[in-house]
Design a protein around this nucleic acid. Structure first.
Lengths: 197, 197
DNA sequence: ACCTGAACACCGTTCAAGT
DNA sequence: ACCTGAACACCGTTCAAGT
């Protein structure tokens, strides 16, 4: 990349972050270009789609998030890890209004620039769930898709202003549901080693 | 309303229903007008906003839904009522792709043509929850907003194709969480009459 | 009364023309 | 190499002009 292009690239990212935080994830690309003092075509060559722009914007946040997942996998109890993970996700979800809807859509579409990032979050979630299930700390009748689905659903909900105040409580309620073995499957800790801690 | 206007009105509704089912709740208004063989301005005078159009389209579904809530309030056990109600909502949510996102947004905005409909669903949910709480069948540490929030979240999730297959299961998981008195508040059936059935 | 085409200000996509 | 203005096909809003 040429020096002027490089400079443009990082300047665009800086401004885009500002605009998207102010206006939400569906801000106009034209608006971003305008505020960056750059031609719209220039913005779109650096980031051909909204997803591509977000991929670049989110990589910092997402790296922090997945790294956190790694830490949680070793340091905490499986149950506490699930709760912390969910809360980390909710913080991420509030980085940009509408970002979860964008990621949820990208999750289905392998061509999306956000697909890999979604997959990373998905698999981290699945790993944490599996570990909890192996220890009998999480209900056995759910899978990684369910886990990610609940995260997406609550992550989406939280950027509706009316629901944001109760978000923490809803997360508590849902993680509670994930972590408690309900009567129906409480005896099903088939493969899991007994809770030895 | 004049005879020709009346005819236009119902014809537009018929076509709009078709288009919105095919294309989802964010289909182009222009497209709807085109397919109804009507000027765009005509469509927009009958239904000045997308919300107004949906208000007219959904009133049948919503009447059925709220009526169902009334039945559930008397016929079933409070717990079963909550579960049935949630499932009814999920069926409604799948009537049009994106309709829950539309309603969730309208929920905050008193000027929206869908505001009253949202409020009706909200209050029906709150009533059913209160009854269940009074009998100690639902956890006491949540309110109508939480209930509606969970309904919105799962209703939104279900129109992402990747999550639709697991939706029933997630509803089961969440209603489970609502209905079981968790250890922390299991003893808190303060006002509730003992479960006498 | 009711309908409609057209003008308007937006959007993202695309590309020929500039440096 | 990289940038940009402009043309394009869309969108919802608005209104003067028709019946």
């Amino acid at each position: 990349m040429r020096a002027d292009a490089k400079k443009n690239y990082s300047h665009i990212l800086t401004i885009a972050r500002e605009v998207l935080i102010e206006e939400g994830a569906d801000a106009s690309m034209r608006d971003i270009a305008r505020r960056a003092n750059v031609g719209l075509a220039t913005l779109l060559r650096h980031f051909p789609t909204r997803e591509a722009l977000f991929e670049a914007l989110l990589c910092t946040n997402l790296d922090a998030l997945t790294q956190k997942a790694g830490e949680l996998e070793t340091s905490n109890s499986p149950g506490e890890a699930i709760m912390s993970w969910f809360r980390e996700w909710m913080t991420f979800a509030q980085s940009y209004r509408g970002v979860v809807a964008l990621m949820a859509a990208a999750h289905t579409n392998p061509d999306s620039a956000l697909y890999a990032s979604c997959a990373a979050v998905h698999s981290a979630s699945a790993r944490l769930l599996l570990r909890a299930q192996a220890e009998g700390a999480a209900r056995a009748d759910m899978n990684g898709d369910d886990m990610f689905g609940l995260m997406a659903a609550l992550g989406w909900l939280v950027d509706l202003p009316s629901f944001a105040p109760r978000a923490d409580h809803l997360v508590h309620l849902v993680t509670d549901a994930i972590l408690t073995n309900r009567p129906g499957n409480g005896g099903k800790r088939k493969g899991g080693r007994k809770v030895v801690r």
